[in-house]
Write a protein that binds this DNA or RNA. Structure first.
Lengths: 235, 235
DNA sequence: CAGGCGAAGATTGTATAAAGTTTCGCCTGT
DNA sequence: ACAGGCGAAACTTTATACAATCTTCGCCTG
C-alpha cells in the first residue's frame, strides 16, 4: 500500500508561487511591518516577487478570505483595519474555540510534540530577551497555531489561523500600553498543563490567557467605525 | 454626518458577476444537484453564466476556501468529497459553535426576527409536504444560517456558512437511510426556545438536534481516506 | 483666496492569447 | 492477445493587452 493514494508529487503546501506571495505578505502583516490601511498595489507586489498580476491577485483574494486584507472595488487592496466590534467578536470566538483545542491537544501529547512545544517556548524567550518585537509578535501567534496543529483538528486549525491573523492586527491597533509581549509565561503554563494531560487546567489557563490579552486592549463601546483620524488628532 | 463614511454606492453583496457565479454553483451543490466528485470545467461554467474564465476561476477559488470545491493542480476543480474524518470534525465544530450562536440569538430576539423565523418554518413545512427534497435540503441549512445571522456575530456566521455547506455534502454522502429531512420539528422547537428567550433550552435543543443528525450518518471509524472506490466495489 | 470643474495619470477589472501539463486513445512489438 | 509506449487533444495555468474607473493635480471662476 502506498502511503498516499494521491501522488501529489511536489507541492507539500507552498512550492507554487502564489503561496510564496501569500505567505510573504502574511508574514509581513503578522510581524507588523505592514500597518493597517497600507495600500497593497498589485504591480508593486508583483515586481517584488517577480510574478504577474494574475498571481498577485489570487494571493490577495485568499488573504481577503483570511480577514487580513480588504479589497475595495476599483480602489485596490489594503491591509485590513479591524473595528472594535470585530475585535470583540474575534476574541469571543477564540475564547470559545481555543479551550476546546487545548483539550484535544492533551489527548495528542507525545514526546515529539512536547519537544516542539519546548523548543518554541525557548524561541519565544530568546526573542523577548533580544528585544525583537517583531519576532515576539509572530512567535506568540505561532504558539497558538502550534497547539491547534497538535489537536489534529483541521477545521479548528483553519478557523484559528484566521483568528490569529486578525488578532495580530487588533493588538497592533488597540493595545493600551506598549505591551512588551503577551505573557510568555502564560504559554509555559499551558504547556505544563498539556504535559500533565490536565485538561481542566489547560482549558482554564488558555481561557484566562485570552481574557488577559483582551483586557490589555482599548475597545471603546460605541460602534465607532473608521474614526481613527479624528481620534488620534483629538488627543 | 453621513450615515456611511465610505460611499459604497451599489453592490450590497452580490451585484458583481463573480458573486452570481459563486452563489449559483453553491446553490447547485447545496441542493444536491451537483454531486461530489463532479468536474467543474471552467469553460463549461463560464458559458453558462456568460462570463470569462477569469471570473469563473475567482468564484471557484472562493468555493475552495469554503470547503465545498477542491482544486487539483493541473486537473481542475471538482465538487469536494469530505472524508468521514472531515465529517466528524465538521459536526464537532458545529456542536461547539451553534449552541453559542442560539444563545446570542436569544438576546437578539425581536418581532421582526420571529416573523422571519416563522416564515422560514412555514417554507420548510411546505417543501417537505410537497416532497421537494432539493428545497428541503437547502432550507434546512438556511435555517441554521438564519439563526447565525440573528446572532449578529459576523465571525460565527462566516464559520457556520462554511460548516453548513460542508454538512450538506456530508449528509449526501454518508446518510444511512434516505432520511426524508432532518427534523423540521426540531427547528420549530428551537424557535420556540428562542421566542421564550430560554437560553438553556435553546442550547440544549440545538445540541441534541445536531447530535441526532450526526447519528443518522454512517461514519466508519478507520481513517479511511479516499478509499471510496474499493469500498463500493468490495461490497 | 476659496471652491469647483476638468483633463491627465495611474490603477484596477476583464478578456484573450500563449505555454505547460495531464489524460486518453492508438499503435507497435513481443 | 496483451503490455508498454508514443502522440494528439483538452484542459489548466500563466502572462499580456485592452477597457473602465478612480484619483490627483492644475486651472479657472466667483
Amino acid at each position: 500500500m502506498a502511503a498516499k493514494t494521491r501522488p501529489k508529487p511536489d507541492t507539500p503546501d507552498a512550492s507554487d508561487r502564489v503561496s510564496r506571495i501569500r505567505e510573504g505578505v502574511t508574514a509581513a502583516i503578522l510581524e507588523h511591518r505592514l500597518l493597517p490601511g497600507t495600500k497593497l498595489g498589485e504591480d508593486e507586489i508583483g515586481e517584488i516577487y517577480g510574478a504577474s498580476r494574475t498571481l498577485v491577485r489570487t494571493a490577495l483574494q485568499q488573504l481577503v478570505h483570511e480577514g487580513i486584507v480588504s479589497i475595495e472595488k476599483n480602489r485596490g487592496a489594503f491591509v485590513a483595519r479591524p473595528t472594535p466590534a470585530d475585535a470583540r467578536e474575534v476574541f469571543e470566538a477564540r475564547r470559545l474555540i481555543e479551550p476546546t483545542i487545548v483539550d484535544h491537544a492533551c489527548d495528542a501529547v507525545s514526546p515529539a510534540w512536547l519537544d516542539r512545544l519546548r523548543r518554541h517556548l525557548a524561541e519565544e524567550r530568546e526573542a523577548e530577551l533580544r528585544g525583537d518585537a517583531r519576532a515576539s509578535v509572530r512567535l506568540s501567534g505561532e504558539f497558538h497555531r502550534l497547539v491547534a496543529e497538535m489537536s489534529g483538528h483541521s477545521i479548528y486549525l483553519g478557523f484559528l489561523k484566521e483568528l490569529i491573523a486578525r488578532s495580530s492586527l487588533i493588538i497592533l491597533l488597540y493595545r493600551r500600553h506598549d505591551t512588551p509581549a503577551c505573557g510568555t509565561d502564560h504559554h509555559a503554563g499551558i504547556v505544563a498543563a498539556i504535559r500533565k494531560r490536565d485538561k481542566a487546567a489547560a482549558r482554564e489557563q488558555m481561557l484566562s490567557h485570552l481574557t488577559e490579552i483582551e483586557a490589555e486592549l482599548f475597545l471603546k463601546d460605541p460602534a465607532a467605525d473608521e474614526m481613527r483620524l479624528a481620534d488620534v488628532l483629538g488627543a
